[in-house]
């Protein structure tokens, strides 16, 4: 099986954020070794305390929490993107491994396929 890294880079109110998670869940369901990296505005999906019902949206939290349950092997967050937005790990609703900028190139190398969504 070719491993797959999905880079999720849209804020949570965007359908694109949900659709990136859908691909991750589908890949994991097919037994593909799958990882997700939250980067750029994608890190905002991980913010605690979101109440999407205020804007009549379905919460993304359930989909996020499904990632490890459905076999997504690694969940990572770009530390640089967090820092740019003044965020720290304590504000994350998922246990995501922080990845430094210097690690990103090696990470892209490590996975057989990389899809940015």
């Amino acid at each position: 099986m070719k491993s797959l890294l999905i880079i999720s880079r849209h804020p949570p109110a965007r359908l694109a954020a949900r659709e990136a998670l859908d691909l991750a869940l589908a890949a994991a369901a097919f037994g593909v070794p799958t990882a997700v990296l939250f980067m750029d505005d994608g890190v905002l999906q991980l913010l605690k305390g979101q109440d999407a019902t205020q804007i009549n949206r379905k919460s993304l939290a359930a989909n996020l929490q499904a990632l490890p349950l459905f076999g997504v092997e690694e969940i990572m967050v770009c530390q640089h993107s967090m820092g740019e937005r003044g965020l720290g790990g304590a504000q994350c609703l998922l246990d995501a491994r922080p990845v430094e900028s210097a690690e990103i190139a090696a990470l892209l190398d490590h996975y057989d396929q990389v899809v940015t969504l």
């Binding site: 099986m1 070719k2 797959l4 859908d22 691909l23 589908a26 890949a27 369901a29 097919f30 593909v32 396929q113 899809v115």
Partner: peptide, 11 residues
């Protein structure tokens, strides 16, 4: 068809 078709194509 489903997203599985993309997953399969990537493989």
């Amino acid at each position: 068809s489903g997203l599985g078709q993309w997953v399969d194509a990537l493989q």
